[in-house]
Simulated assay, not measured.
Amino acid sequence: MSEKSAQKRKYILEKAREVFAEKGFKDVTMKDVVEACDISRGGLYLYFSSTEEIFLAVLSDSSDDDDDEAIANALNNDATAGDMLALFLKEQKKEILRKKNSLVRACYEYFSTVDVPAQDNPLRKQFDTAVTIVQALIENGVQSGEFFCADPYGCARNLMYVVEGLKVSAKTIGVSEAAVDRELLYILEGLVPPEE
């Protein structure tokens, strides 16, 4: 793919993300994406054949580069495991409370109606990556004596299930910032070593 084509594809995905964030998945048509991108229908079909293909590309391209960059910066600055975990959770909290450009509604509309094998599911890949990152942070904290945890993998998995639940709750029943802080802190308190 030429540089110009790659830029055009990236532009289409950015605009499509806005459309999916606004309308969900089920109400988006190719016409909506054409209008958002201000391109011809044929121009769009050069890159994508369906809204499903566009949506999956949007999900694959939104693998939270900001989280990776923030954690890499923390690692380079000799931050403690607790500092890095706090930074990771701060990014997760921003995503939970995000009002605009959130794909949560679209994701749940799509994945509740389509059976996608786990190995092909971009949300599963993002979840598993997050669990791996949190597990590594907890293990580092245990080694340094900063954390106490008999099962870092189980704790990391549980933490990410809480984060995912908060994302859904924020879009369905409403969740305050204080509620997000309370739920995340509850899990983090379990990592504090017992006082001797």
Rank of each mutant, 00 (worst) to 15 (best):
L89M: 12
C155M: 15
I138P: 01
F147R: 01
P117E: 08
A179C: 06
K100H: 11
G154S: 12
L87C: 11
I138Y: 00
E91F: 11
L159W: 03
E91D: 10
K125E: 03
D120G: 12
C107E: 10
G145P: 00
L184A: 02
F127R: 05
K94H: 07
G190N: 10
K167D: 02
K171S: 07
A106Y: 07
V163T: 07
E146N: 08
C149I: 05
K171E: 11
L191Q: 01
V175Q: 01
E95A: 15
V114C: 09
Q143S: 12
A150H: 11
V192C: 04
A150P: 09
E183L: 11
D151R: 09
L191V: 08
G165F: 03
V168I: 14
K100W: 07
A79S: 14
G145L: 02
Q143Y: 12
L103C: 04
E91I: 13
A81W: 02
Y186W: 14
V192Q: 12
V180D: 00
L87S: 07
P152H: 00
M84F: 09
K167G: 00
Y108A: 07
Y161L: 13
A70I: 12
F88I: 02
L89H: 08
S169F: 05
V104H: 02
L184H: 05
K167E: 02
I96K: 02
K99H: 08
A106W: 03
R157A: 13
N121A: 07
V134D: 03
A130C: 07
G154R: 11
K93Q: 08
S144M: 08
L97W: 06
Q135C: 10
A150W: 10
E189F: 09
L185R: 15
K171Q: 07
E164M: 13
V104S: 01
T129W: 14
L87E: 11
Y108C: 09
A178L: 08
E69T: 14
A150C: 11
G145E: 01
I71V: 15
P152A: 02
M160P: 00
N158M: 15
K125N: 03
N77L: 13
L185W: 11
F111K: 06
L185D: 14
V142Y: 02
R105Y: 03
A136M: 09
V192Y: 09
G154P: 03
N77V: 06
D115R: 14
Y161M: 13
K90G: 13
A150T: 15
T132R: 15
V180F: 00
Y161E: 08
T132Y: 13
G141F: 01
L188S: 05
A86V: 05
A79V: 05
T129R: 15
T113V: 08
Y161N: 13
M160Q: 10
K93R: 12
S112T: 12
C107S: 12
L185F: 10
R182W: 11
N140I: 04
Y153F: 12
K171N: 05
I71M: 13
K90I: 04
L123Y: 03
E146G: 00
V180P: 01
G174T: 01
R157H: 15
L87W: 07
K93C: 01
L89E: 01
L123S: 05
